[in-house]
Nucleic acid binder design. Structure first.
Lengths: 140, 140
DNA sequence: CGCACTGTTCTATTTCATATAGAACAGTGT
DNA sequence: ACACTGTTCTATATGAAATAGAACAGTGCG
């Protein structure tokens, strides 16, 4: 869950209103994990939390890049990662959509897999060995 | 689990003997994970599997570097990583030793695997599919 | 159709972690 | 004393990540 903050700011278009702002994506340029991975993880989390649902349209890559203050190509790389995971549906002239079947569960699954893979790598286990252990854990 | 191989080789110092060789550390120069992390992971695994126990002495960094065909500084960096994790005890003129208490990593790994398996089952994924996704998440 | 969007592809450049190399230094134990 | 150990220093080569800009090609809408 992302922290929500009540922000006091004056919007000329909509005066006399106070908004509860939820941080959707927050990047850490100092982190060792690549920016494109951070973006992909953020979108996965949004899907997992239900903020993004199947069929939902994402903002264009250029829009995201502008809002996040990062390069277009960095965003596109993140989108491609999610496409390869079957989470996003990307076509040429259209904007990216969340795959219908890509429920919150699928995003959570990939999130859990990523954590498990990280632990496995830390232990020096090969991908094959980790996969074998997962199959074993499945049977339980 | 590391594969064990029976190797046929003639040692003049010890003739008439066949050895069962277990690969302790194997590096992949093409991998995206840094060499020093691979070395650290290998040592973590040896500890997790009981091949290295608390108080055990490691070979000198120069010896390891020579045997692995990598640079001294790369090995030293791996050792420093493990020292910062409280796994190794390193002092100036002495060779590194394994700290007495070590490794909840393996438990964490299996814990993460269990969570991933639970999610996979919830999605109706087969064990084979989940294992395939894990291999993909591993990335190499 | 015309137009403004979309993602795609290409070349180039900058930056930084990784890895290498070699030398000199300083602590440890026999 | 001596042969080992890790430590520290400078230097260089390499590749991934990120940026930048341009041109290309598909989509949807008035």
């Amino acid at each position: 869950m992302r922290r929500a903050a009540t922000v006091y700011m004056y919007f000329p278009q909509r005066p006399s209103a106070i908004y509860d702002v939820r941080v959707l994506i927050e990047l850490d340029h100092a982190s060792s994990t690549p920016l494109y991975e951070q973006v992909a993880a953020a979108i996965r989390r949004e899907i997992a939390e239900g903020a993004l649902r199947g069929g939902d349209e994402l903002p264009s890559a250029r829009t995201l890049a502008g809002a996040l203050g990062i390069n277009l190509h960095t965003v596109l790389r993140a989108l491609r990662v999610l496409r390869d995971e079957g989470i996003l549906d990307i076509h040429h002239g259209r904007t990216a959509r969340v795959v219908a079947g890509a429920s919150a569960d699928q995003a959570l699954f990939h999130q859990a897999l990523g954590a498990a893979a990280a632990h496995g790598r830390r232990l020096g286990l090969s991908a094959e060995d980790a996969a074998r252990y997962l199959t074993q854990a499945y049977g339980t």
